[in-house]
């Protein structure tokens, strides 16, 4: 439940404990840098995986995210949480990765005389569960902006406000994209949900 405005006022703003870790890391504290990796890498990897659709690209995106974050620790303005800041970097890196992959696929299709059409997902070899594969395929067919919102909400658990900060969008846009993304996914995954219209 979103806190009522009066409740927020009573509690005040609690300091983000991760922000202190960032300050230490900025001062060159190696333990703080390691703590940031340990704290956020598993969740960010999950986010990367569901944004780009395969483990190899997800690892690259994660690596680029942390490289970028550590290079620009000074740019963290402490206006959002560390988690949101890192998610925002990762979403941008994932978008870049997807554009790169799309160009490669177009180039591959041109090389093979355009034999392949539609989205082709390079699957992780370790992925065998039908549900996961079908979910990945369903996510892959979503427009990029809907995919980002649904993954951040349903698989990472960010609040609307955090998603808005991460994607630099108005909250209302987050709501409408989430609504439409859920509608599309329900249609694509209805075999797993008997009774769905």
């Amino acid at each position: 439940m979103r806190p009522h405005p009066e409740e927020s006022a009573e509690n005040g703003h609690l300091p983000d404990p991760d922000t202190e870790v960032i300050r230490l890391a900025r001062d060159g504290d190696e333990a703080a840098c390691h703590a940031l990796v340990d704290r956020f890498a598993p969740e960010l990897y999950r986010l990367a995986y569901f944004l780009v659709g395969n483990a190899a690209d997800a690892e690259d995106v994660l690596q680029e995210t942390f490289s970028g974050a550590f290079r620009h620790l000074g740019r963290f303005a402490e206006l959002s949480s560390v988690r949101t800041w890192l998610c925002a970097i990762l979403v941008r890196q994932a978008a870049r990765c997807r554009r790169r992959r799309k160009r490669q696929m177009i180039s591959l299709e041109e090389g093979t005389g355009g034999a392949s059409h539609g989205a082709v997902l390079v699957r992780d070899e370790t992925s065998s569960a039908d549900l996961r594969m079908d979910l990945e395929a369903a996510l892959d067919t979503l427009p990029e902006d809907h995919r980002e919102v649904i993954v951040l909400r349903e698989l990472i658990g960010l609040s609307y406000e955090e998603i808005a900060q991460t994607l630099d969008l108005p909250r209302g846009t987050v709501e409408s994209r989430l609504f439409r993304a859920r509608r599309t996914l329900r249609e694509r995954l209805k075999d797993y949900m008997p009774g769905i219209r």
Partner: peptide
């Protein structure tokens, strides 16, 4: 339906790091 979709999505773990 939102609840069922949400439950379905949250059952997906994804690969571990």
């Amino acid at each position: 339906e939102i609840r069922r979709l949400s439950a379905l999505l949250s059952s997906i773990r994804g690969p571990s790091l």
